[in-house]
Protein backbone atom coordinates (compact mmCIF):
# COMPACT_ATOMS: atom_id res chain seq x y z
CA UNK A 1 0.00 0.00 0.00
CA UNK A 2 1.52 3.23 -1.03
CA UNK A 3 1.44 6.43 0.94
CA UNK A 4 -1.27 8.84 0.07
CA UNK A 5 0.30 12.07 -1.04
CA UNK A 6 -0.95 15.42 0.08
CA UNK A 7 -1.82 16.52 -3.40
CA UNK A 8 -4.07 13.54 -3.89
CA UNK A 9 -5.76 14.21 -0.61
CA UNK A 10 -6.34 17.82 -1.43
CA UNK A 11 -7.57 16.91 -4.89
CA UNK A 12 -10.05 14.53 -3.39
CA UNK A 13 -11.30 17.15 -1.00
CA UNK A 14 -11.49 19.69 -3.79
CA UNK A 15 -13.50 17.26 -5.86
CA UNK A 16 -15.85 16.65 -2.97
CA UNK A 17 -16.12 20.35 -2.43
CA UNK A 18 -17.09 20.97 -6.02
CA UNK A 19 -19.57 18.12 -5.89
CA UNK A 20 -21.15 19.66 -2.85
CA UNK A 21 -21.26 23.03 -4.49
CA UNK A 22 -22.92 21.58 -7.54
CA UNK A 23 -25.38 19.90 -5.23
CA UNK A 24 -26.23 23.16 -3.53
CA UNK A 25 -26.66 24.93 -6.81
CA UNK A 26 -28.50 22.25 -8.72
CA UNK A 27 -30.72 20.64 -6.13
CA UNK A 28 -34.13 22.04 -5.49
CA UNK A 29 -35.06 20.15 -2.39
CA UNK A 30 -34.06 22.00 0.72
CA UNK A 31 -32.98 18.88 2.55
CA UNK A 32 -30.80 17.92 -0.36
CA UNK A 33 -29.28 21.37 -0.33
CA UNK A 34 -28.51 21.03 3.33
CA UNK A 35 -26.91 17.69 2.67
CA UNK A 36 -24.85 19.08 -0.15
CA UNK A 37 -23.71 21.76 2.22
CA UNK A 38 -22.61 19.08 4.63
CA UNK A 39 -20.58 17.58 1.85
CA UNK A 40 -18.87 20.89 1.33
CA UNK A 41 -18.08 21.24 4.99
CA UNK A 42 -16.69 17.78 5.19
CA UNK A 43 -14.63 18.33 2.09
CA UNK A 44 -13.07 21.29 3.81
CA UNK A 45 -12.61 19.15 6.89
CA UNK A 46 -10.86 16.51 4.86
CA UNK A 47 -8.57 19.14 3.47
CA UNK A 48 -7.73 20.17 7.00
CA UNK A 49 -6.94 16.60 8.00
CA UNK A 50 -4.70 16.16 4.99
CA UNK A 51 -2.96 19.43 5.68
CA UNK A 52 -2.57 18.59 9.35
CA UNK A 53 -1.00 15.28 8.55
CA UNK A 54 1.38 16.96 6.18
CA UNK A 55 2.69 19.17 8.94
CA UNK A 56 2.35 16.51 11.60
CA UNK A 57 0.20 18.83 13.67
CA UNK A 58 -3.00 18.20 15.51
CA UNK A 59 -4.32 21.57 14.37
CA UNK A 60 -5.90 20.11 11.29
CA UNK A 61 -7.86 17.61 13.28
CA UNK A 62 -8.90 20.23 15.78
CA UNK A 63 -10.22 22.32 12.97
CA UNK A 64 -12.08 19.30 11.72
CA UNK A 65 -13.72 18.88 15.09
CA UNK A 66 -14.75 22.50 14.99
CA UNK A 67 -16.13 22.06 11.53
CA UNK A 68 -18.11 19.06 12.66
CA UNK A 69 -19.59 21.07 15.44
CA UNK A 70 -20.44 23.89 13.15
CA UNK A 71 -22.00 21.54 10.67
CA UNK A 72 -24.04 19.99 13.42
CA UNK A 73 -25.29 23.32 14.63
CA UNK A 74 -25.97 24.50 11.14
CA UNK A 75 -27.92 21.40 10.30
CA UNK A 76 -29.74 21.62 13.58
CA UNK A 77 -30.97 25.07 12.82
CA UNK A 78 -31.46 24.21 9.18
CA UNK A 79 -33.67 21.24 9.93
CA UNK A 80 -35.71 23.30 12.33
CA UNK A 81 -36.27 25.88 9.66
CA UNK A 82 -37.01 23.29 7.03
CA UNK A 83 -39.61 21.81 9.31
CA UNK A 84 -41.30 25.15 9.75
CA UNK A 85 -41.11 25.84 6.06
CA UNK A 86 -42.72 22.55 5.28
CA UNK A 87 -45.53 23.29 7.68
CA UNK A 88 -46.10 26.66 6.15
CA UNK A 89 -45.54 26.10 2.46
CA UNK A 90 -46.22 22.35 2.24
CA UNK A 91 -43.26 21.96 -0.02
CA UNK A 92 -39.54 21.74 0.23
CA UNK A 93 -38.87 23.07 -3.21
CA UNK A 94 -36.37 25.87 -2.94
CA UNK A 95 -37.81 27.53 -6.02
CA UNK A 96 -41.15 27.99 -4.42
CA UNK A 97 -39.62 30.24 -1.83
CA UNK A 98 -39.85 33.39 -3.81
CA UNK A 99 -42.13 35.58 -1.81
CA UNK A 100 -39.77 38.49 -2.04
CA UNK A 101 -38.87 40.16 -5.26
CA UNK A 102 -37.38 43.37 -6.41
Amino acid sequence: MSEISIEQGLLLSAALFVLGLIGVLARRNLIMILMAMEVMFNAAGLAFIVAGSRWGQADGQIMFLLILTLAAAEVGVGLGLVLQIFRRFHTLDADSLNGMRG
Binding site: L68, T69, G76, L79, G80
Partner: peptide, 23 residues
Protein backbone atom coordinates in the same frame (compact mmCIF):
# COMPACT_ATOMS: atom_id res chain seq x y z
CA UNK B 1 -44.65 14.22 16.22
CA UNK B 2 -42.35 17.20 16.22
CA UNK B 3 -40.62 15.55 19.13
CA UNK B 4 -38.77 13.28 16.78
CA UNK B 5 -37.32 16.19 14.84
CA UNK B 6 -36.41 17.96 18.01
CA UNK B 7 -34.69 14.89 19.25
CA UNK B 8 -32.73 14.53 16.06
CA UNK B 9 -31.48 18.06 16.48
CA UNK B 10 -30.61 17.56 20.13
CA UNK B 11 -28.76 14.43 19.28
CA UNK B 12 -26.73 16.08 16.61
CA UNK B 13 -25.73 18.84 18.97
CA UNK B 14 -25.04 16.77 22.05
CA UNK B 15 -23.25 14.07 20.18
CA UNK B 16 -20.97 16.67 18.72
CA UNK B 17 -20.31 18.13 22.12
CA UNK B 18 -19.40 14.72 23.42
CA UNK B 19 -16.72 14.52 20.75
CA UNK B 20 -14.90 17.29 22.56
CA UNK B 21 -15.18 15.33 25.76
CA UNK B 22 -13.66 12.31 24.04
CA UNK B 23 -10.71 14.41 23.05
Amino acid sequence: SVQFYLLAIFFVIFDMESVFLFA
